[in-house]
Design a protein around this nucleic acid. Structure first.
Length: 589
RNA sequence: GGGCGUGUAGCACAGCUGGAUAAUGCACCGGCCUCCUAAGCCGGAGAUCGCGGGUUCGAAUCCUGCCACGCCCGCCA
């Protein structure tokens, strides 16, 4: 709890010095050490073990002595010595004052312009759950940074010149619908609900072409035709690039429609081919060729020997083919140099399969005198049956998942809220369904393996998005009730002291949880760990529920202005935090 | 074979810049709707933190060896 720490640190340092130890350690050791239990046992804690040797005293005795040395302070409710720890609990009225008046520590001093690149999936078919982790994590990171006050650009890097797009373009030009459907006759047919959606339509051409490339008698000729297209695109052939764009654009639009349903939007789309056609890639390859770690292969291909810069394993990083054309990673470096002209903080969201390449790109950027971007890696989402693949067709489409989630939410609603009309019910079900899907994914650490299970994705119980949404609607409901009693309460800001006597347990827990909000958000943004904020939002909801249990804002028709002020503060914090996680903040559900 | 990542109750998952009784949810057992939404609240039970060594007053956390799983090791994208 930085708030409390900065206030009372001098007091503690003075007491420690009086004992005869160097107080320089205190700043680092005074910590909110009780984060591992919830609710926390105290607000700040000082472990006294390190002082034991120099003082030749037992830690418990040191803690005991310190607890008596520290004078009274308005922020401190209680200081106790427990098992060699000096435990400090904040005064509730001090907490209330700081929380209600938003006396939070200042945030980032300089304005940060952050560019976050995420999703960047090949536009070859509908968005599926396997890709969802990138988009959901990335978008959540964007939102969290915005909550923290950073200026953020969310960017999608469009792979408009690779083999996957070439396959799609070739298929659309060379295969008939009959042929496609006959090749895919063993697979599930297109879901009639999405029959008019271009991503669902065109992915069948893509899948059929992938089969033909591998299995048909003319596979070699097809492969050659596609190879020619890829080659032309890499050389910046505008006619080919245009035909690629005509092929993928409707697919990309379909994917974006799906993502939009999850609240995911982008500020900018940058096409990979741009860096080929504008000459950046050629210039880059020239520069790389001048580097001292540059090497040339027998056929004229060029690479950097990154072993000299600490890379282990395979150390040769090829950036130029024997025929002089660029590679995907080369273009990525050109893209990164451009990105650095657009921001002062760069974050990429990448799958774990990109770890090596990200390292190569990062080292090369440093070699060129640029900074390396920060990267949030995540491991892939699997199905219980194994890895997902658009090519093989064993995927759960996000469109289907969202429909399923909505249908499930509707079932729950019909049971709990039979009073609602169809339109309201559909609105709530959509919000609950999409929020639950997002939360299911962001609440686990990105680097941990994730197996998609319907029963988890559709869980609406405690520990899920609807749990948080429900707490928020309670706060909204209380606000409505207060307005009914006397609308003037809504315009008032709470003035003066809170109650000076003992506050109810739930109220204290809520104040403490609100007080650590910025500590949590700061860490989450700094370390790119959205799951920790998901956890915090659950704690905030739990704390609000405890407050709701212990404190009646409206009691016997009378409004308690202090309780109402706390409830409102919690409501706005819930609301803002939900926005940052992409959870829809309904006023009633 | 080499590099990187992960391993925590029956299941899922947090905690990893060392600190107290390892948090949370599901499932399981018991209680709470004449009072602001019970998608809620309260209580109970459940853990050899993959295994072995080491460092330390103190290790889930740091170091090291081993095991299991995943990803990568293309002049592919």
């Amino acid at each position: 709890m930085q708030l409390l720490k900065s206030d009372i640190l001098p007091l503690i340092e003075k007491a420690v010095e009086a004992l005869g130890v160097d107080s320089g350690l205190v700043e680092r050791m005074l910590q909110a050490s009780t984060e591992h239990t919830w609710p926390p046992a105290c607000d700040l804690s000082l472990p006294c073990f390190q002082f034991a040797k120099t003082l030749n005293m037992a830690p418990a005795a040191i803690a005991e002595r310190l607890s008596k040395e520290i004078p009274e302070h308005e922020a401190i409710h209680e200081i106790t010595a427990v098992n060699g720890f000096l435990n400090i609990t904040a005064s509730s009225s001090w907490l209330a004052d700081h929380v209600l008046n938003q006396r939070t520590p200042h945030r980032s001093d300089e304005r940060r312009e952050v560019l976050i690149e995420h999703t960047s999936a090949n536009p070859n078919g509908p968005f599926h759950v396997g890709r969802a982790r990138n988009a959901i994590l990335g978008d959540t990171l964007v939102r969290l940074h915005r909550l923290w006050g950073d200026e953020v650009t969310a960017e999608y890097y469009v792979d408009d010149m690779g083999k996957q797009v070439a396959v799609l373009a070739w298929a659309l030009e060379n295969m008939s619908e009959e042929e496609v459907e006959s090749l895919l006759k063993d697979r599930d047919p297109i879901n009639p609900q999405w029959a008019q959606k271009a991503d669902h339509q065109r992915v069948r051409w893509y899948q059929a072409a992938q089969l033909r490339r591998k299995e048909s008698p003319d596979a070699t000729a097809i492969e050659a035709a596609i190879g020619t297209l890829v080659h032309a695109s890499e050389n910046g052939d505008q006619g080919v690039l245009d035909s690629f764009e005509r092929a993928y654009k409707p697919v990309l639009d379909g994917m974006l429609e799906t993502l939009g349903r999850l609240g995911i939007h982008y500020d900018r789309f940058t096409k990979e081919s741009v860096f080929v056609t504008n000459g950046d890639v050629a210039e880059l390859m020239n520069e790389l060729g001048q580097l001292e770690i540059n090497g040339v292969a027998d056929n004229g291909a060029q690479y950097l020997d990154l072993g000299q810069r600490g890379l282990k394993g395979k150390t040769e990083f090829f950036y130029r083919r024997g025929d002089g054309s660029s590679l995907y990673a080369t273009r990525d470096i050109a893209y990164h140099r451009w990105k650095w002209t657009q921001c002062n903080e760069l974050i990429n969201v990448l799958g774990e399969d990109h770890r090596l390449q990200a390292k190569q790109v990062g080292l090369t950027l440093e070699e060129l005198g640029e900074r390396r971007p920060e990267v949030m890696f995540y491991s892939f989402i699997k199905l219980p049956e194994g890895k997902m693949s658009t090519r093989r067709g064993n995927v759960v489409f996000m469109d289907d998942l969202l429909e399923e989630a909505k249908a499930h939410a509707t079932d729950v609603l019909k049971e709990r809220r039979p009073d609602l009309d169809d339109e309201t019910m559909a609105h709530i079900a959509e919000a609950v369904g999409t929020s639950a899907v997002r939360f299911n994914i962001i609440s686990v650490s990105p680097e941990k393996g994730f197996t998609f299970r319907w029963e988890d994705a559709l869980s609406f119980e405690a520990g899920s998005a609807p749990f948080i949404m429900y707490s928020h609607t309670r706060a909204c409901s209380i606000r409505r009730k207060v307005r009914d009693v006397d609308p003037s309460y809504l315009d008032q800001t709470f003035q003066g002291e809170g109650p000076t006597d003992e506050m109810p347990y739930g109220l204290v827990q809520l104040l403490r949880t609100l007080a650590v909000h910025d500590d949590q958000l700061s860490r989450v943004v700094r370390e790119h760990r959205p799951n920790l904020f998901a956890n915090y939002m659950l704690q905030l909801s739990m704390a609000y529920n405890m407050f709701y249990r212990d404190c009646y804002v409206i009691d016997h028709g009378e409004v308690n202005p202090f309780f109402f002020a706390v409830s409102e503060r919690a409501r706005t914090a819930l609301r803002a935090g939900m926005d940052a996680l992409g959870i829809v903040a309904l006023e009633s559900m």
